[in-house]
Nucleic acid binder design. Structure first.
Lengths: 103, 103
DNA sequence: CTTTTATTTCAATAAATCTTGAAATATATG
DNA sequence: CATATATTTCAAGATTTATTGAAATAAAAG
Protein backbone atom coordinates (compact mmCIF):
# COMPACT_ATOMS: atom_id res chain seq x y z
CA UNK A 1 0.00 0.00 0.00
CA UNK A 2 1.35 3.42 -0.93
CA UNK A 3 1.46 6.31 1.49
CA UNK A 4 -1.31 8.23 -0.29
CA UNK A 5 -3.71 5.32 0.00
CA UNK A 6 -2.87 4.74 3.66
CA UNK A 7 -3.36 8.45 4.35
CA UNK A 8 -6.82 8.20 2.75
CA UNK A 9 -7.72 5.28 5.02
CA UNK A 10 -6.44 7.06 8.11
CA UNK A 11 -8.55 10.08 7.15
CA UNK A 12 -11.62 7.83 7.07
CA UNK A 13 -10.72 6.65 10.59
CA UNK A 14 -10.23 10.19 11.90
CA UNK A 15 -13.76 10.69 13.21
CA UNK A 16 -15.21 9.25 16.43
CA UNK A 17 -18.59 8.47 14.89
CA UNK A 18 -16.93 6.55 12.09
CA UNK A 19 -14.88 4.58 14.61
CA UNK A 20 -18.10 3.73 16.43
CA UNK A 21 -19.66 2.66 13.14
CA UNK A 22 -16.75 0.29 12.56
CA UNK A 23 -17.10 -1.11 16.05
CA UNK A 24 -20.83 -1.70 15.55
CA UNK A 25 -20.17 -3.45 12.24
CA UNK A 26 -17.43 -5.63 13.70
CA UNK A 27 -19.71 -6.68 16.54
CA UNK A 28 -22.53 -7.31 14.08
CA UNK A 29 -20.26 -9.71 12.19
CA UNK A 30 -21.02 -11.21 8.79
CA UNK A 31 -24.69 -10.23 9.01
CA UNK A 32 -23.78 -6.58 8.97
CA UNK A 33 -26.17 -3.74 9.79
CA UNK A 34 -28.44 -1.56 7.70
CA UNK A 35 -27.99 2.20 7.45
CA UNK A 36 -30.91 3.07 9.68
CA UNK A 37 -29.73 0.93 12.58
CA UNK A 38 -26.21 2.34 12.23
CA UNK A 39 -27.53 5.90 12.38
CA UNK A 40 -29.47 5.05 15.55
CA UNK A 41 -26.49 3.35 17.21
CA UNK A 42 -24.16 6.32 16.71
CA UNK A 43 -26.89 8.89 17.30
CA UNK A 44 -26.51 10.62 13.96
CA UNK A 45 -29.09 11.91 11.49
CA UNK A 46 -29.78 9.71 8.49
CA UNK A 47 -27.97 12.14 6.25
CA UNK A 48 -24.97 12.42 8.55
CA UNK A 49 -24.71 8.66 8.91
CA UNK A 50 -24.93 8.33 5.15
CA UNK A 51 -22.03 10.78 4.82
CA UNK A 52 -19.90 8.77 7.27
CA UNK A 53 -20.79 5.50 5.53
CA UNK A 54 -19.77 7.00 2.19
CA UNK A 55 -16.45 8.09 3.66
CA UNK A 56 -15.72 4.60 5.01
CA UNK A 57 -16.97 3.02 1.81
CA UNK A 58 -14.77 5.24 -0.39
CA UNK A 59 -11.78 4.11 1.63
CA UNK A 60 -12.83 0.50 1.10
CA UNK A 61 -13.19 -0.16 4.82
CA UNK A 62 -16.83 -1.17 4.49
CA UNK A 63 -19.04 -2.44 1.68
CA UNK A 64 -22.77 -2.35 1.12
CA UNK A 65 -25.40 -4.54 -0.44
CA UNK A 66 -29.01 -3.76 -1.09
CA UNK A 67 -31.46 -5.93 0.76
CA UNK A 68 -35.01 -5.06 -0.13
CA UNK A 69 -35.55 -1.47 0.94
CA UNK A 70 -32.50 -1.39 3.20
CA UNK A 71 -28.79 -1.15 2.48
CA UNK A 72 -26.76 -3.59 4.52
CA UNK A 73 -23.22 -2.61 5.44
CA UNK A 74 -20.37 -4.93 6.35
CA UNK A 75 -16.82 -4.27 7.46
CA UNK A 76 -13.93 -5.40 5.23
CA UNK A 77 -11.53 -7.10 7.61
CA UNK A 78 -8.90 -7.69 4.94
CA UNK A 79 -8.79 -3.98 4.17
CA UNK A 80 -8.40 -3.02 7.82
CA UNK A 81 -5.78 -5.73 8.23
CA UNK A 82 -3.86 -4.37 5.25
CA UNK A 83 -3.77 -0.97 6.92
CA UNK A 84 -2.39 -2.40 10.16
CA UNK A 85 0.19 -4.28 8.13
CA UNK A 86 1.12 -1.10 6.27
CA UNK A 87 1.55 0.78 9.53
CA UNK A 88 3.73 -1.90 11.09
CA UNK A 89 5.74 -3.01 8.07
CA UNK A 90 5.92 -0.22 5.50
CA UNK A 91 5.52 2.90 7.54
CA UNK A 92 7.33 1.72 10.66
CA UNK A 93 9.90 -0.49 8.98
CA UNK A 94 8.86 -3.61 10.86
CA UNK A 95 10.35 -2.03 13.95
CA UNK A 96 10.81 -4.42 16.82
CA UNK A 97 10.28 -1.49 19.18
CA UNK A 98 6.80 -0.89 17.79
CA UNK A 99 5.84 -4.57 17.76
CA UNK A 100 6.75 -4.87 21.41
CA UNK A 101 4.39 -1.98 22.16
CA UNK A 102 1.22 -3.63 20.81
CA UNK A 103 0.82 -7.15 22.16
CA UNK B 1 -7.91 5.09 24.63
CA UNK B 2 -11.21 6.79 23.87
CA UNK B 3 -12.56 7.18 20.35
CA UNK B 4 -11.96 10.93 20.28
CA UNK B 5 -8.28 10.50 21.09
CA UNK B 6 -7.86 7.73 18.53
CA UNK B 7 -9.60 9.88 15.91
CA UNK B 8 -7.11 12.66 16.69
CA UNK B 9 -4.19 10.29 16.16
CA UNK B 10 -5.64 8.95 12.92
CA UNK B 11 -6.04 12.53 11.70
CA UNK B 12 -2.34 13.09 12.35
CA UNK B 13 -1.61 10.00 10.23
CA UNK B 14 -3.87 11.12 7.39
CA UNK B 15 -1.20 12.90 5.34
CA UNK B 16 1.46 11.23 3.13
CA UNK B 17 4.22 13.64 4.17
CA UNK B 18 3.54 12.93 7.81
CA UNK B 19 3.66 9.18 7.16
CA UNK B 20 7.04 9.70 5.47
CA UNK B 21 8.21 11.71 8.45
CA UNK B 22 7.31 8.85 10.75
CA UNK B 23 9.13 6.39 8.51
CA UNK B 24 12.24 8.57 8.50
CA UNK B 25 12.14 8.87 12.30
CA UNK B 26 11.66 5.12 12.78
CA UNK B 27 14.63 4.42 10.52
CA UNK B 28 16.69 7.04 12.34
CA UNK B 29 16.01 5.21 15.61
CA UNK B 30 16.82 6.55 19.07
CA UNK B 31 19.09 9.26 17.65
CA UNK B 32 16.15 10.92 15.94
CA UNK B 33 16.41 13.63 13.30
CA UNK B 34 16.40 17.39 13.45
CA UNK B 35 13.72 19.51 11.80
CA UNK B 36 15.90 20.62 8.90
CA UNK B 37 16.87 17.12 7.85
CA UNK B 38 13.24 16.00 8.10
CA UNK B 39 12.14 18.86 5.84
CA UNK B 40 14.77 17.87 3.26
CA UNK B 41 13.84 14.19 3.38
CA UNK B 42 10.16 14.79 2.69
CA UNK B 43 10.81 17.68 0.32
CA UNK B 44 8.77 20.21 2.26
CA UNK B 45 9.46 23.83 3.13
CA UNK B 46 10.74 24.53 6.64
CA UNK B 47 7.42 26.05 7.56
CA UNK B 48 5.40 23.19 6.09
CA UNK B 49 7.58 20.61 7.83
CA UNK B 50 7.18 22.50 11.06
CA UNK B 51 3.41 22.36 10.63
CA UNK B 52 3.49 18.60 10.06
CA UNK B 53 5.80 18.10 13.04
CA UNK B 54 3.46 20.11 15.23
CA UNK B 55 0.53 17.97 14.10
CA UNK B 56 2.37 14.74 14.94
CA UNK B 57 3.63 16.22 18.17
CA UNK B 58 0.15 17.37 19.27
CA UNK B 59 -1.04 13.82 18.77
CA UNK B 60 1.86 12.58 20.91
CA UNK B 61 3.28 10.46 18.10
CA UNK B 62 6.63 12.26 18.19
CA UNK B 63 8.53 14.31 20.74
CA UNK B 64 11.22 16.95 20.42
CA UNK B 65 14.26 18.04 22.35
CA UNK B 66 16.42 21.05 21.76
CA UNK B 67 20.01 20.27 20.88
CA UNK B 68 22.02 23.42 20.47
CA UNK B 69 20.44 25.32 17.59
CA UNK B 70 18.52 22.34 16.29
CA UNK B 71 15.41 20.59 17.48
CA UNK B 72 15.72 16.85 17.46
CA UNK B 73 12.59 14.78 16.90
CA UNK B 74 12.00 11.20 17.92
CA UNK B 75 9.10 8.84 17.34
CA UNK B 76 7.11 7.57 20.34
CA UNK B 77 6.78 3.84 19.75
CA UNK B 78 4.58 3.30 22.77
CA UNK B 79 2.09 5.85 21.49
CA UNK B 80 1.93 4.29 18.04
CA UNK B 81 1.65 0.86 19.64
CA UNK B 82 -1.24 2.07 21.78
CA UNK B 83 -3.06 3.16 18.64
CA UNK B 84 -2.59 -0.23 16.98
CA UNK B 85 -3.83 -1.85 20.17
CA UNK B 86 -6.85 0.47 20.22
CA UNK B 87 -7.68 -0.39 16.62
CA UNK B 88 -7.40 -4.13 17.18
CA UNK B 89 -8.87 -4.42 20.64
CA UNK B 90 -11.21 -1.52 21.36
CA UNK B 91 -12.41 -0.49 17.94
CA UNK B 92 -12.46 -3.94 16.35
CA UNK B 93 -13.42 -5.93 19.41
CA UNK B 94 -10.33 -8.16 19.28
CA UNK B 95 -11.86 -9.73 16.21
CA UNK B 96 -10.20 -12.96 15.15
CA UNK B 97 -11.09 -12.12 11.56
CA UNK B 98 -9.06 -8.94 11.72
CA UNK B 99 -6.10 -10.53 13.46
CA UNK B 100 -5.89 -13.18 10.79
CA UNK B 101 -5.68 -10.41 8.19
CA UNK B 102 -2.50 -8.76 9.53
CA UNK B 103 0.24 -11.31 10.17
C1' DC C 1 26.48 43.12 20.49
C1' DT C 2 25.92 41.90 15.66
C1' DT C 3 25.51 38.21 12.55
C1' DT C 4 24.44 33.59 11.23
C1' DT C 5 21.90 29.33 11.58
C1' DA C 6 17.78 26.61 12.81
C1' DT C 7 13.17 26.58 13.45
C1' DT C 8 8.66 28.30 14.56
C1' DT C 9 4.85 31.49 14.38
C1' DC C 10 1.84 34.44 12.02
C1' DA C 11 -1.31 36.27 8.51
C1' DA C 12 -3.88 35.70 4.49
C1' DT C 13 -5.93 33.04 1.09
C1' DA C 14 -7.35 28.59 -0.85
C1' DA C 15 -9.35 24.23 -0.22
C1' DA C 16 -11.72 20.73 2.24
C1' DT C 17 -14.94 19.08 5.66
C1' DC C 18 -19.04 19.49 8.78
C1' DT C 19 -23.77 20.13 9.45
C1' DT C 20 -28.65 20.69 8.49
C1' DG C 21 -32.83 19.98 6.26
C1' DA C 22 -35.19 19.49 1.95
C1' DA C 23 -35.52 17.01 -2.28
C1' DA C 24 -34.49 12.87 -4.99
C1' DT C 25 -34.04 7.83 -5.65
C1' DA C 26 -35.15 2.99 -4.95
C1' DT C 27 -38.07 -0.52 -3.33
C1' DA C 28 -42.15 -2.52 -1.52
C1' DT C 29 -47.24 -2.65 -0.60
C1' DG C 30 -52.28 -1.81 -1.08
C1' DC D 1 -50.69 3.81 -9.85
C1' DA D 2 -50.50 6.10 -5.22
C1' DT D 3 -48.42 5.74 -0.87
C1' DA D 4 -45.05 4.45 2.62
C1' DT D 5 -40.33 3.24 3.93
C1' DA D 6 -35.22 3.40 3.64
C1' DT D 7 -31.49 5.83 2.25
C1' DT D 8 -28.86 9.02 -0.46
C1' DT D 9 -27.91 13.36 -2.71
C1' DC D 10 -27.84 18.19 -2.91
C1' DA D 11 -27.27 23.04 -1.52
C1' DA D 12 -25.67 26.54 1.50
C1' DG D 13 -23.36 28.33 5.28
C1' DA D 14 -20.13 27.38 9.27
C1' DT D 15 -15.97 25.48 10.68
C1' DT D 16 -11.51 23.44 9.98
C1' DT D 17 -7.33 22.42 7.50
C1' DA D 18 -3.72 23.41 3.86
C1' DT D 19 -0.32 26.35 1.83
C1' DT D 20 2.85 30.14 1.22
C1' DG D 21 6.17 33.47 2.42
C1' DA D 22 7.51 36.96 5.66
C1' DA D 23 8.51 38.00 10.36
C1' DA D 24 9.77 36.40 15.00
C1' DT D 25 12.37 33.55 18.31
C1' DA D 26 16.33 30.86 20.09
C1' DA D 27 21.01 29.70 20.29
C1' DA D 28 25.79 29.93 18.80
C1' DA D 29 29.88 32.34 16.97
C1' DG D 30 32.77 36.20 15.78
Amino acid sequence: MIDEEAAHLFLALSNPDRLRIIRALVVAGPEGLNAGDIAKQVGASASRASFHLASLSDAGIIHRQRQSRSLRYRVDFARLGALVTYLMRDCCNDSRDLKSCCP
